[in-house]
Structures are given as C-alpha cells and as structure tokens.
Nucleic acid binder design. Sequence first.
RNA 1: GGUCGGGUGGCCGAGAGGCGAGGCUCAGGACUGCAAAUCCUGCUACACGGGUUCAAAUCCCGUCCCGACCUCCA
Length: 472
Amino acid sequence: MSSLSLYDTLSRTVQPFVPLKKGEASIYLCGATVQAPPHIGHIRSGVNFDILRRWLEKSGFNVTFIRNVTDIDDKILQKAVLEKSPWWAVAMKYERAFTDAYASLNVLPPTYEPRATGHITQMIELMEKLIENGSAYAPGNGDVYLEVRKLSSYLTLSGQKIDDLLPSDDATETFKKDPKDFALWKGAKPGEPSWPTPWGDGRPGWHLECSAMAHAYLGESFDIHGGGLDLIFPHHENEIAQSQSAGWGFAKRWMHNAWVTTSGEKMSKSLGNSLQVTELLKLVRGIELRWYLGSAHYRSMLEFSQSALEESATAFRRIESFLYRAEEILGQAPTPTLSHDFVSAMNDDLALPQALATISQSLRTGNTAITAGDKKALAVSANEVRGALEVLGCDPYDVTFAQSNGGKSRSGDLTSALDGTIQLALAQRASARDRKDFAASDAIRDGLLALGIAIEDTPQGPRWSITSKEER
RNA sequence: GGUCGGGUGGCCGAGAGGCGAGGCUCAGGACUGCAAAUCCUGCUACACGGGUUCAAAUCCCGUCCCGACCUCCA
C-alpha cells in the first residue's frame, strides 16, 4: 500500500507526510471570520480539509482537528453598525450560518472550535513573551506591533521580499518603527469592544488569535496548517512571524485550497446572494453540492456555473442509484471497502479527479455485473463505490443525508406506507401491461411521475424512486 | 513594480517527455411494448511562434491572454 504524500506551500513540492508523533495528525484550519453568510468559496475550504481529515483517519491516524472562529474583527464591527445589532449578536448569527452550512454538507465538526474572544488570555501571554524577548513593542497608544525585520525567515512562505511589497494604507502610521510592522493588538477606540491588557484596553489584531489558539490546542508545533490561498500573505506569514518569534516551531506543513471562481474571477461579496450555500441548497441536495465541491483538485480553481453544478449532481445521482440497485439485488447495503487504485489516488496529494475516475470504473464494472447477474462481482464493485464515497463524505447511507434519500429500501413507517401504496399502483400497471393495455400502464407511470415517483422497469421487476424537482 | 498560479475537446476537469484520465453533453447501436436505467461504439483536444529530442500538451526560448496576492479575504 502506498503512503500519503501532500503538497507543502512552503517548499512548493509534494512530500511524504511524516507526522510529528507516530499515529497522530494535528491540523489547524483557519475557519471563518463570521461577518457574512457563507458562500460556496468559504465552504469549499471546509469540504477540502474535511476530506483530508477523513483520509488521514481512514489511513489510521488519530486526528486532532482545530478550526477557529474569528468573532472579533473590523468587518464584524462595521456589520454591527449596519445591522444596528450588537457585534456579538452579529458574530453569533453568522457563526450559526457557517455551522449550518458545514452540517448540511456533512463536514465533520472539528475536534475543537475555538473562538478568538475566548482566548484573550492566551493572546496577552503571547504578546508578553514577544515584548519580553524584543520581537514586539508597545509604543504607548494601546497598540502592540511585531517588528518584522527582526525575523530573518519573514515572508518565506509567500516568497516575497519585504522591500518589494507595495506600501500599505497605514504606512504613515507614526507609532510603527517600520511601516511593514503589523499590529498584534489594537488600542481601544470609542464605542468599540475592548479587553484590558498591560498596555491599555484594546482588541486583537487579525492574526494573533490563530497563533495563540494553535499553541493552546496543538502545542508549539503541529503537522498541518491550512486555509485559503489568499491567507498565505499576510495572514499566514504573520502567524509564522509571531509564533516563531515566540520560539515555537509552529506548522510543519502548509496547505492551501484554491478558489471557487465565477467567470474566471475570484468570488466576491459584490456577487450578491446567489452563491450562498443556502441558495445553492435550493438547487441541489447537500450531498450533491459536496460532491461538486470535492470533484476538482483542492489546489485547482473550480469554475462555478449552475449547469456544471447540475451536471455534477446528475453524475452523483447515477452513482447513488447504482448503490441502491446493488442493495436491492444483494439484499443488504454495500460494505465500504477501498480499491487499490482509489487509495493510490488519494495518497498522491488527494488526487480527487483520479479518485473519481476509479469510482467510474467500479461503477461500470458493477453495472455490467448487474446485467450479467454476477452478484459476487457486483458486491465487490458496490463495496468499492461506497467505500470511496464514504471517504469523500458523500456516502448516501450516512445519517446526515439519510433524510433526503429516495428509494424503497429506506426504513420508516411513512416510507413503508408509501411503498405499499406504490406497489398497489404497480400491480395495476403490471396487469395492464399483461393485457397489452399500454395506454393504461403509461398513465399510471405518468401519474406517479407527476407526483415525483419515477418508475423504472428492470429485469428484477419495476423499482421506484423519488425524483428531484427538476426532473419532473 | 514584486510574488504566485493558469490557458487542454461542445462543457467540466486530470495529467506533465512515448501508452486517447475521467465525467457530462451529443450521435449511432444493443436491450425495451414504449420510456427509464444500463452496456457498447463514435466525437484524437492541449493559447501562439520557434527550438531541443527518435518522440513534446509535457522540456527550453520568445509572444499573447487570464487570474490571485502585495497588511484584517476561504
């Protein structure tokens, strides 16, 4: 069996994954700044790293997965003014929106989900350490800055040179020793929330919380730090600067997911609401949206279009219905197993497109086995398909998705009542077909379809399933 | 200006010196009372111009185009 290799943004190469502690994997993922509802770009990050996590677990690692919530930030404060609502209510509202979105896409809850505002103590401790060792300074206005030129490794993740950077808007900030220094902590402004510190009241800068919280839950160094591409600079550079200035090893490996784009461009707030997760879930089911987001390689841009999403959903339904047919024929749900090719693909930096190709292969083999009446071969294929879907978080049998499933083998009183009703109709249709009254038999089939029940004739007899809205 | 990533068939989307990834759509066929589902066959693509090589989508040089980041974006 091959072993897992992953891309590392720092070295820009794919390297074998060797954990710090045998059998353990520690991951810190930059989660949401909860200032607006999630669009699919946000959630792609969640799905991509969820697949990584599931694969690590499947590979036998005990995974500690930390995904933070940044619940204090300039934009949250702006939004609070706009919505005429306390900043903490705004943050909570959008945090829930993210939680709901993650749940509807079957993203596993993190091992722990720390909020920035719950870790002010750790942030102050970190700043004290940085000031003590001369890495940071408090000029007296309530701000605390990191002195970036003191750290020789600054900007190695993004490969930039400090003097090549464009000057920032606050370059004229007089309290900074150097315009490139960044704020760990911001002095309180009137009307804004603040916490007391040895240097005056204030609130966290953007980056400090991640260093403090990663340290609190994962220790001085950990295996993987993840986030979106745009976080490489400045966010992750600054995290590295803070943490390494404190003497911590910090992340051993950096992984970044690419964008969901529209018309070749990065998604932006100005696109409005149409790409919010809640809107897209009106078009396709959560499992289908997840399948779509997982179908591209995590480091490739995914060009969004509604037709691409719908096509992807159609493709998924084909796989799903194969599993249900297999279950009907075999008399039991497939048992998840992994094919050698699927494992190899996943181990090669989570090569999802290749992994999906192996699913297509198993699917074709399995369908051929159905036609040939080869139950043994069918079981092998169906097991492989389900095993792969399980790793991708798209197992239709997963309880998260179970309520949205059609088909007749699902349990529950309502389903069995419905099944009985449909069987009556099917019996009528069968007798109509026996006397070659096809007008009558088709009327029954069309009538059921109008109600959202699709009928297919198979060598094993007719089967029914709930159709999606757009197929009616 | 600096840094990074791209341009692949009707569409999506991999690959990275030689064997047509895969999916969707479309066309034809098998099966079917008809559908649906399924299977089979077909659609031989890599921005442009040079070069290296027995062999280039892949390497080199040049050109064009697109995108991301450059201090509070996933």
